[in-house]
């Protein structure tokens, strides 16, 4: 309820934030919306000595279109994503997923950068980032680098970010013609985090077979992952019941999945099947229309 005493510094630029991060190392934490970090601090599960508040770095609060991709600054809130006209037109699955996060208060404060960097295994965005093949921009002392979403989520609360880097931007593709995406979430009745969340992206070939497909699954395992085996089975085939049944047979291995109060690994595996099937169907329908 009351965090351990900590120091607080406000960074006004990315460089200032990086300098502070370099000077204080593991003792410091970046503070964006604070909706993951502050609760952990109140329970004293996280006890940083310094909070570097990056909330005032204005250049990281924009959503803009650039070279066929939509670029989101790390400080863009879930609420801004939920209501972004640009995203609703060019990449509607992202606002749809954002609308499922927490409640309005959380969505008003929480940021996409904070959520991705925190890498909660049950967060919603990771599945969508994987399905969209998003790029995550990390900035460190030597400048910026781009990390593919599938390389980014490495384990429980663990990402490809280096200790001296901060997540600065996220880039998702504008949806190409004859493509569709969907995110379906089976929420934990208590926390409303995903017990399992599945994002699917489908691009259809002229003959309505599946030209490109990506499946991102969150909540099920210690880190969000791509269901590549199933993806491979689907390419070149029409998305129908028979194809889906065959392709999803090997979707996940329950031995790799989490078991907790909300669901056993066995049930999570089942939910992965049900939700992936539904998400693929929905994505394919959207690709058609």
């Amino acid at each position: 309820m009351i965090p351990q005493t900590f120091a607080y510094k406000k960074a006004h630029t990315i460089d200032e934030a990086l300098a502070l991060l370099r000077a204080h190392g593991d003792d410091a934490k970046l503070l964006a919306g604070g909706h993951s970090l502050i609760p952990l601090m109140k329970l004293r599960l996280s006890t940083p000595e310094l909070l570097i508040d990056i909330g005032g770095i204005r250049e990281l609060t924009e959503i803009r279109e650039q070279d066929g991709r939509i670029e989101l600054g790390a400080l863009v809130t879930h609420r801004m994503i939920e209501f972004s006209t640009l995203l609703k037109q060019k990449c509607p699955v992202l606002p749809e997923a954002a609308a499922l996060i927490g409640d309005p208060q959380v969505r008003n404060k929480g940021t996409i950068g904070g959520s991705l960097a925190h890498a909660d295994p049950a967060a919603d965005y990771p599945a969508v980032m994987l399905a969209l093949d998003a790029e995550i921009e990390a900035t460190g002392p030597d400048g910026s680098r781009t990390i593919a979403a599938r390389e980014f989520f490495q384990g429980l609360f663990t990402t490809a970010l280096r200790p001296d880097e901060m997540l600065t931007r996220v880039r998702v593709p504008a949806m190409p013609p004859r493509s569709g995406a969907a995110y379906l979430k089976f929420p934990n009745p208590a926390s409303r985090y995903a017990v399992v969340g599945v994002a699917a992206f489908v691009k259809l070939a002229p003959d309505d077979t599946c030209a490109e497909v990506r499946i991102g699954i969150t909540g099920a395992a210690p880190a969000a992952f791509r269901a590549t085996r199933a993806e491979e089975q689907l390419v070149g085939r029409a998305i129908d019941d028979r194809t889906l049944t065959a392709a999803l047979e090997d979707l996940v291995d329950p031995d790799d999945l989490l078991s907790d109060l909300a669901a056993t690994a066995e049930y999570r595996a089942h939910l992965c099947h049900v939700l992936t099937r539904r998400a693929l169907r929905q994505a394919a329908e959207r690709a058609h229309s």
Binding site: P189, A190, S191, L261
Partner: peptide, 11 residues
């Protein structure tokens, strides 16, 4: 107590 917060206890 495993259901010691609203993260695990569903109202």
């Amino acid at each position: 107590l495993l259901t010691g917060s609203f993260l695990d206890y569903a109202l």
